[in-house]
Computed example of a mutant assay.
Amino acid sequence: MNISGNTIFIPGSTSGIGLALALALRARGNKVIIGGRRTELLDRIAAEHPDIDTVEIDTADGASIEAAAKGVLARHPDLNVLVTMAGIMRIEDWRQPSSFLASAEETVTTNVLGPIRLIAAFVEHLRARPDATIVTVSSGLAFTPLKVTPSYNASKAAIHMLSESIRLQLAGTSVKVVELVPPAVRTSLLPGQEDSEFAMPLEEFVTEVVALLETQPDAKEIQVENVKFLRYGEARGDYDQVVAALNAHDPHGE
């Protein structure tokens, strides 16, 4: 995708990677619309950044996605980039069904159905634009599992294969599909992750992502260097060692 001159909607961007990326993209000459559930955060962002539009959206709710999409497209008919950023990550113990089932269902609803519904709400409009991009967000954990987050790992693996598949279907149209593959980043996605020495600093991550978008406009995946250890373990032939190393460093493991 081009690094500037876009109108970009990023649902799930009131904090963490989403907000940092939104601000970085706005600084590169893009119109940015931020979406989220928490109105107090949306109000604060709108007050601090008057040139950023905000919209209330719950990506776990299909009706909320439909309503938000109508509003965004009515206000921004030139929208040409959708970033399906929203996601949740939960620690689960699959030896105790009563403790993980609700979490697993919520994770799949938010992390898999959410992006599917978002793409469904915007793809027809995007196909009518001369140059458009859908950015999906998977994870290094789509390729190497973290023991304590089974549903998150599976949901991000699903997003990877969804991205691969819809890219094939949209080939020959004006819509590109780009998969952002983050490593662990210092955000509040999990308790303690903001201060984890094993997580990548947020500003460093976003700076590298923007640089990759600029220098690799035709990239199918945006991979910072820190994620390649997880991303290519199987291809390198050291998958078992990568799994062991990842889980040895996990502060939430047993």
Rank of each mutant, 00 (worst) to 15 (best):
N6I: 07
L79Y: 08
A63L: 07
A244K: 15
L25M: 14
M1Y: 04
E203P: 06
S155Y: 09
V209N: 07
N80S: 14
T207L: 07
L190M: 09
L118G: 00
H249F: 05
T54A: 11
V112T: 12
D58V: 01
Y239R: 11
A128Q: 15
V55R: 04
R90H: 09
A60S: 15
R117L: 13
L21D: 05
R38H: 09
N80F: 06
P217M: 04
E197D: 09
A102Y: 03
A244E: 14
T144D: 06
E234S: 14
R95G: 08
R167P: 01
S155H: 12
L202M: 10
P201K: 00
V55L: 02
S99W: 01
P130D: 08
L180C: 01
D78C: 07
I134C: 06
I119S: 07
D58C: 01
T187E: 10
I33W: 13
A219V: 11
L41I: 00
V206S: 10
S138P: 01
A142Q: 04
R236S: 09
T59N: 07
F229Q: 06
R95T: 15
R167S: 13
L101R: 15
V72P: 07
L246S: 02
A211K: 13
T39L: 11
T110P: 11
L41K: 13
L118I: 02
R26F: 00
S4F: 09
A74Y: 06
A104H: 14
E208R: 07
R127F: 03
V243W: 08
F100V: 13
V224T: 15
L113V: 05
F100R: 11
V181G: 03
T39D: 12
V55M: 05
E40N: 12
N247P: 00
E194T: 08
E105W: 10
P130S: 06
T207F: 01
A104N: 10
V112D: 07
H160Q: 10
T187D: 09
R37Q: 10
L41Y: 07
S13V: 00
A22D: 09
L118M: 11
I17W: 05
H49F: 13
T215Q: 13
A68D: 09
V210P: 01
